[in-house]
Amino acid sequence: MTESRESAVTGQAWSSHEGAAALAAPTSTEKRRAFDGRILLGFFLPVAIALLWEGAVTFGLAEGRLVPPPSRIIATLSALAQTGELWTHAWMTLWRVLVGFVIGAVSGIVLGALSGSSQTLRQLLDPTLQALRAIPSIAWVPLFILWLGIFEASKVALIAVGVFFPVYLGIAGAILSVDRKLVEVGQVFRLSRVQLARRILLPAVLPEAVIALRSGLGLGFMFVVAAEFMGASEGLGYLLVDGQQMGKPDQILAAIIAFAILGKLADSLLVAATRPLVRWQDIVRERL
């Protein structure tokens, strides 16, 4: 009798807890509305700045010669899109970044994992790689042109260098920062090295690895500008150079905006692709 009464009380308490959790958890509609609100909020600052500058030029408060108003930049983007130039240049830039990102990211993951998991390899590799990381990106340009020529190989190599170092540092640092107690728990349960890596190290490293990949992708878009300064005839970097040589600030700003949009889309795709890998995280951001 007493046991049945305790079971009933426990069941009522558990039901109450589940009911409170269900009431506290946001519904899919609320999550969608919050997501839409965050997107709209993200557009507020650039749209506000564009409208203020457009108004300043329209009412004669600013000249708008060196910094054209948004209406002129949009007209330039529209003209480039209608002729097909914008899509050609954007695709070429995206292709270079994609190839360089894959090469740099794979190299960074492999060497970062080796450096982070072995003290001997870290002492062998890390000093040299840290010294190479300090070399300015532009210093690689003449060497890559001499080795690989002025065509695509040298441009992709420069982008790969830019992607490699943040990925290498992120992976090595993530492995070295794994909580020692987690490893000890795996050793207590007599996990093999492969099981330890798969069940403990990999989940612990993944969140920081995703951040490292995002940093590498961002630097890839930065390095592609320097790469496309190396005698390119296509690409958004070429549009920048052409706009500077022809005295077209509207074309320069149009290329910069195209870079920003392309980089943001690529970053969003990377985040969406890696989200299933870190879905297990119970973080504050997912609850706000």
Rank of each mutant, 00 (worst) to 15 (best):
Q195S: 03
V156D: 04
L94M: 14
G64I: 07
S16N: 10
I261H: 05
L45M: 11
A254I: 02
I252R: 01
A258M: 14
V141T: 01
L52W: 02
A75K: 09
S215L: 15
L217M: 13
A105E: 00
V178W: 12
R198A: 12
G37W: 10
R190C: 12
L111R: 13
R285C: 00
P142K: 01
W87H: 12
A24R: 03
G220C: 03
S192P: 02
G173V: 13
I257M: 13
F189P: 02
L40P: 01
Q119N: 08
A255V: 11
A197P: 00
V284P: 01
V9E: 10
D282H: 00
L132K: 09
R133F: 06
A20K: 07
W140Q: 03
L45S: 03
L148R: 01
G162V: 07
P136D: 01
K31Q: 14
L219K: 07
K264M: 07
A20W: 07
Q244I: 15
W14I: 08
G84I: 09
R32G: 02
G247F: 07
V47H: 01
L121T: 07
R199Y: 15
G170W: 02
S268F: 11
V99C: 09
K31H: 11
S233H: 09
S4C: 01
A75P: 00
I171Q: 13
W53Q: 13
L262W: 13
W280C: 05
Q281S: 01
I171V: 15
E208L: 15
H89K: 11
M222H: 04
R133M: 13
V278W: 08
L265K: 01
L94T: 15
A24W: 00
L196V: 06
P69F: 00
E208D: 15
L213W: 04
P203R: 11
G216H: 06
M1S: 03
M222L: 15
T274S: 15
I39M: 10
L114Q: 10
Q130L: 09
R32C: 03
S78I: 05
L182A: 12
R198C: 06
F101M: 12
L51V: 15
D267S: 09
Q281C: 00
L45D: 00
A160G: 00
L132W: 02
A62I: 12
Q82Y: 06
G173Q: 07
T27R: 04
I138A: 12
E3Q: 10
G84W: 13
S154F: 04
F44W: 15
W53M: 10
T83E: 07
A24S: 04
R198P: 03
